[in-house]
Write a protein that binds this DNA or RNA. Structure first.
Length: 449
RNA sequence: GCGGCUGUAGCUCAGCGGUAGAGCGCCUGGUUGUGGUCCAGGAUGUCGUGGGUUCGAUCCCCAUCAGUCGCCCCA
């Protein structure tokens, strides 16, 4: 008997799965997001779950350790699969796709993609190893009008609004501002990377700590003398958050002159200007937004809840930005683009955890047809069929057990109507409303919900 | 890759050096064709895994695996 021992089922950390009543909600969300994207003319593509490792790493960076590569259990010496890996986002596959089908696409190419991505990181709150992303990107040849930098956040905002979730706000900045500013202060490229990485952490570890660490990078000697003036000047930038165009004046007051900085300010002002139609307070010029991704070159966007959800800090539930030449590793054409992405799984999981998500019914069934007796199965099935012909989702109970049991099944699954075919010849059909308890005679060929 | 915490019925968890309990859920019944409430009854666990200490361990120790929170990093 001991060989009957079962493998204890367990959920794999970082690979979420939901019960049917929540999966149904997730599907509804996807539908809403999708139809919003389509309303703006984005077309759908789907790319394979895997890409060649070289393609994924074409943009460099420290992404390597987060990529799941493919290998077979029975790996042989020349395992061809090992050159493949699961994609870690949808932007890189999209870049490859655009380069590959360059001749067959119409530019500016506007596509959306709702697919899973995988990252081999240590899972923790709000971070998964398998998750859905809902991306929209616009890619063009040579140049891409700045208007798209405003349009995409607007589309994304509309998609969030289509969901039944707490209000979100879009934090927008422009890489050129922070980079230009730091260049203007004389920092070299390496230090700029280190410093910008720290600026992201003001919310997390506090302003003082960030200033100290920034100081340690830009001028260790001054730190020894307890002189934080340069660090403070640097850290003044991420402090700037305005819901209108006034951020530009605040930056200029700091007195740093740099061409790239000016360009960034102009671009961000333009974007803010073109997002004025969104609800007051939902768009913030937030110069603390950096985003880790090195391929962003201009506009950067991050979406957060207006109010923190649960005990968590301001986790990003979406984001994106502009990249000048993402496909450059795949094709000699210059293909600038801008893309934004909704972190569907993180968003959904957060709200689920905190009880914000109302479960849908456990199944799509609208009418359960009772099976009164095995001899009446044909008649019951005919009734079910008649209802389905008019578009209803109908289930015929599988066995002729007690009616009590059949009703309780409908109750537990949240099926709103129960259909009673005749129990004896000559009797009428009846339908019962499970919410009100009301039961009336009905004709399966005409009855409607 | 590093650190803290946790691991007992399907779920949430209690418990104790002498091989285990609650709540919820589940199943059955409260007759004859009708759910949600109520009542009665019932089933379920190699107490994560391996080793050690002990007369004896679910409880102590070690290891291991898994989960979780955080660090690093984040596309």
């Amino acid at each position: 008997m001991s060989e009957n021992r079962i493998y204890k089922p367990k959920q794999i950390s970082g690979f979420p799965e939901w019960l049917p009543e929540y999966r149904a909600v997730e599907l509804q969300w996807m539908d809403k997001i999708r139809s919003t994207f389509e309303r703006y003319g984005f077309c759908s593509i789907e790319t394979p779950s895997v890409e060649e490792v070289d393609a994924l790493l074409a943009k460099g960076g420290e992404t390597e350790k987060e990529i799941y590569t493919l290998s077979r259990l029975q790996e042989d010496a020349h395992d061809k699969d090992s050159r493949l890996a699961l994609h870690f986002d949808l932007t890189v596959p999209m870049a490859r796709y655009v380069a590959q089908h360059f001749n067959d696409l119409v530019f500016p190419f506007k596509r959306y993609q709702i697919q899973k991505s995988w990252r081999g990181e240590r899972p923790q709150k709000g971070r998964f190893r398998e998750f859905y992303q809902c991306d929209i990107d616009v890619v063009n040849v040579d140049g891409l009008p700045l208007h798209f930098d405003a349009e995409l956040p607007a589309v994304m905002f509309e998609a969030y609004q289509a969901l039944d979730i707490p209000p979100v706000e879009m934090h927008i900045s422009n890489r050129k501002i922070i980079v230009g500013y730091l260049q203007g202060l004389g920092l070299d490229a390496d230090k700029i990377v280190l410093v910008t990485r720290l600026m992201d952490k003001v919310d997390k570890i506090g302003k003082e700590k960030v200033e100290e660490e920034v100081g340690g990078i830009v001028n260790p000697i001054a730190i020894a003398l307890n002189d934080l003036s340069l660090a403070k000047k640097i850290c003044a930038i991420p402090e700037i958050k305005t819901s209108d165009g006034s951020f530009a004046d605040k930056v200029r007051t700091l007195g740093v002159a740099n061409d790239l900085l000016d360009e960034g300010l102009k671009e961000l002002s333009f974007v803010m200007d073109n997002l004025k139609h969104l609800p007051q307070g939902s768009v913030i010029a937030d110069l603390g937004i950096i985003r880790g991704l090195d391929y962003y070159t201009g506009t950067v966007i991050e979406v957060r809840f207006k109010e923190n959800i649960g005990a968590r800090g301001p986790l990003s539930i979406g984001g994106g930005g502009r990249y000048d030449n993402l496909a450059g590793s795949f094709i000699s054409q210059k293909l600038p683009g801008i893309g934004v992405s909704i972190g569907l799984t993180r968003l959904f999981a957060m709200l689920l955890d905190e009880g914000y998500i109302k479960p849908a019914a456990k199944c799509p069934t609208q009418v359960l047809v009772v099976l009164p007796a095995e001899e009446r199965r044909a008649e019951a099935a005919a009734a079910a069929h008649a209802l389905r012909l008019r578009g209803m989702n109908v289930e015929l109970y599988h066995s002729a057990t007690k009616v009590k049991k059949q009703l309780s099944y409908a109750e537990k699954k949240g099926i709103p109507y129960v259909w009673f075919p005749p129990f004896e010849d000559g009797q009428p059909h009846e339908v019962k409303n499970m919410v009100t308890g009301e039961q009336v005679k009905a004709d399966p060929s005409v009855w409607k919900i």
